[in-house]
Amino acid sequence: MPEGDAVWRTARRLHQGLAGDRLEGSDVRVPAHATADLSGRRTIEVVPRGKHLLHRLEGDLTVHSHLRMEGSWRVHPVGRRHALGARHTVRALLWTSARVAVGDSLGMLDLVRTSEEHRVVGHLGPDLLDPGYDVQVALANVLADPERTITEACLDQRNVAGMGTIFTAEPLFVLGLHPWAPVGEVGADRVEEMLSTARRMLVLSCRTGRTTITGRADVTADDAWVHGRVGLPCKRCGTPVRLAPIGRQPQERVMFYCPTCQGGLAPTDDGARQTPLGHARRRYE
């Protein structure tokens, strides 16, 4: 699922392509809004909210979407509208006289009154990429359940919005924190440091225009400490990076970590040899 930085870049792309222009037409391909006509409305702005996108139009109307695993929004010259719209996975087309925005494979798409956006994003905690991010509220949310693992607490978008497995695994490694450690054992100071580190990494990724941990322009394929590096040597100690499930269904995830740098094997890790992702004998997808 795209994380906060990818959603931020998507919102920026849509805003730059459509803001200030009137829509000449729309094609919303979800049953609840199939008859909606957005033509004549001017795009005011497109903004991210955690992993959600809010495309605000004149007349107190917002196109709300969530990319989930496979979704995307792209902006193309309007002349390509018919060809692009022929894809069976397209869920929305919004076009001006010059450009067309194509929402493909969207996990969520609906229309809400802008004044009632709280109905779709009001449950979210403080957004790490919001200029008005409130660290004290986010911290209090994460600390509210001291028995919960630090990973689960940070991935819960009701606590703090924008973090996914990448921007949870990487700060945990950088700070030497065990992903399965209960929040109460981690402590308030370290939790705050974790959130601040995640925020810096997300902001860096937004500035560079790609998901990055180091920010180095010469690093692309392996620009991570642990995420995606199962079976490969830790860049600090050489121990093979591991992957293990965390959380309970339906919120179960998998987390990358170094058992040497981060306090030992996970309680859900049997210690068996794991091969790098992409190899035929990989243990996890």
Rank of each mutant, 00 (worst) to 15 (best):
L106H: 00
G107M: 06
V112F: 11
V112N: 11
T114P: 08
T114S: 12
V121G: 07
V121Q: 08
H123C: 07
L124V: 09
G125A: 08
L128N: 01
L129R: 05
P131Q: 02
Y133E: 07
Q136G: 14
V137F: 06
V142W: 08
A144F: 09
D145Y: 10
E147H: 15
E147S: 15
T149W: 00
T149F: 03
I150C: 06
N159R: 05
A161L: 08
M163E: 04
G164N: 01
I166Q: 10
F167G: 02
F167Q: 02
T168Y: 09
T168L: 07
A169G: 01
A169E: 02
E170Q: 07
L175E: 08
G176A: 08
L177I: 15
W180I: 02
V186K: 02
A188I: 12
A188D: 12
A188C: 10
A188Y: 12
D189F: 01
R190D: 06
V191C: 01
E193Q: 15
M194H: 14
L202A: 00
V203I: 13
S205H: 05
R210I: 00
G215K: 05
G215V: 04
A217P: 09
A217M: 12
A217H: 14
A221D: 14
A224T: 15
W225I: 04
W225A: 10
R229P: 01
R229W: 05
V230M: 15
G231Q: 06
G231D: 07
L232I: 12
L232N: 08
L232S: 11
T239G: 01
